[in-house]
């Protein structure tokens, strides 16, 4: 069963930026903060060649992978067409300025 874990304060993640959460069980998870202060979390592995998505440029609700520029939708983990592939996404939420992750 997954349960909610408190991760960090919203301000610990830069706007249009991300942090990596290391989890024994799930490996690296990238948490993103958009310009609207929405929070998303996906597996920190690009469906293309496992690039670290956390290191990409965030725009809208997408991140561009730093290795070969696939665009990954943060809400679903899906690559933007015509590329095809999906990375696992995790539920994340913001409560009273704190970021929570369901793992």
């Amino acid at each position: 069963m997954s349960d909610w874990k408190k991760i960090c304060a919203l301000t610990d993640i830069p706007q249009l930026g991300s942090r990596v959460v290391k989890s024994e069980e799930h490996g690296d998870i990238a948490i993103f903060r958009t310009s609207e202060d929405e929070i998303f979390a996906v597996h920190d592995k690009c469906p293309h060649k496992q690039g670290p998505l956390s290191q990409g440029i965030v725009h809208g609700r997408q991140v561009t992978c730093p290795l070969h520029s696939w665009k990954i939708n943060l809400d679903s983990g899906e690559a933007q067409a015509p590329d095809a592939g999906c990375t696992k996404s995790f539920a994340a939420k913001l409560e009273n300025g704190e970021v929570w992750l369901s793992i």
Binding site: S35, E36, V58, G60, K71
Partner: peptide, 11 residues
């Protein structure tokens, strides 16, 4: 046209 551009235009 986009709220915060993309990885091409922002840099």
């Amino acid at each position: 046209k986009t709220p915060n551009g993309c990885a091409s235009c922002r840099p």
